[in-house]
Structures are given as C-alpha cells and as structure tokens.
C-alpha cells in the first residue's frame, strides 16, 4: 500500500476510534459501592428481572427513568422489553411480595444523583454521565 494512503487510513481509524469513545452510549451504571462488580449478559438479565436481588451482598435498587431513549434501547437489547413493559413487569413483582419496587425518576441527571447516593442503586444512563459511578456493563 502507498505509504501516504496507509498513513491517511491509520489516522482516519484513530479518529474514528476516538470519536466512538467520545460518543455517548447507554451503560448500566451503579453506585460506587458496587465497584469491582462486572455483569455479563446473563447477570444483567437476572438483575434487571429481579431474579437476582443482590450484587455481591448488596440489595439492588433499580432506578427507572421516564422516557429515556438510552434506557429504552438497553432494555430492548438485553431483556426484550420496552420501559413500559419493564414497569409493568416490576409492578407485578413488588405488588405481590415478589420484589422491591424500583425508584422512578424523570431525567438521567436525577437518576445519576439517586444512583450516586443510594447503596446498591443501578440505572441505565448515558456513559458520558458516568462520573463518580461504577460501570457495570455497557451497550
């Protein structure tokens, strides 16, 4: 390959990779008390569906955001539910003694604050807003 073209290609690849890193994507973020815990796809599903009530020994508190596109995409991808279906699923659990109710908030900023201040709290938030929170899983 022509060295000029090669250099150009490499530069473009680096730029694209940097852009991808900077680009926000939905991530499952947790309270800093959950640091060191990484969840695989099966664990994400088990936690989000209340099959697994704790991460480590800490009770999970799910924070649901009203009308968040990141959350919608993440839930659809991992458990095949919309946010509305997810709310209904959880209502069936906590109204019948089968689980602890999630906390509902209006915005991602609010969710970040609740997750930061609540032991065991998790939420699907834009990864760009991960400051001070633990990344449990992305995409």
């Amino acid at each position: 390959m022509n060295p000029t073209i090669h250099s150009f290609t490499m530069a473009a690849a680096v730029l694209l990779a940097s852009a991808a890193m900077l680009q926000a994507e939905p991530a499952l973020l947790g309270n800093k008390g959950l640091t060191g815990q990484a969840l695989d796809a099966d664990s994400i599903k088990a936690v989000l569906l209340g099959k697994k009530a704790t991460i480590g020994d800490t009770r999970v508190v799910i924070v649901i955001i009203k009308g968040s596109e990141s959350q919608e995409a993440f839930l659809e991808g991992h458990i095949g539910m919309s946010t509305d279906q997810f709310n209904t699923y959880w209502r069936r659990l906590y109204m019948t003694g089968g689980g602890s109710a999630p906390k509902n908030v209006d915005t991602e900023d609010e969710a970040s604050k609740v997750v930061a201040s609540t032991p065991g709290a998790i939420a699907v938030i834009d990864s760009a807003k991960a400051d001070g929170l633990t990344v449990l899983a992305s995409k």
């Binding site: 009530a53 906590y94 003694g97 689980g99 602890s100």
Partner: peptide, 11 residues
Amino acid sequence: INASVAYNKWR
C-alpha cells in the same frame, strides 16, 4: 395497600 422494606438479602 402494601408496605415493604428490603435490606441486602432480606425483605
């Protein structure tokens, strides 16, 4: 009307 409290593995 229901009330519940959870702490770690207990509820």
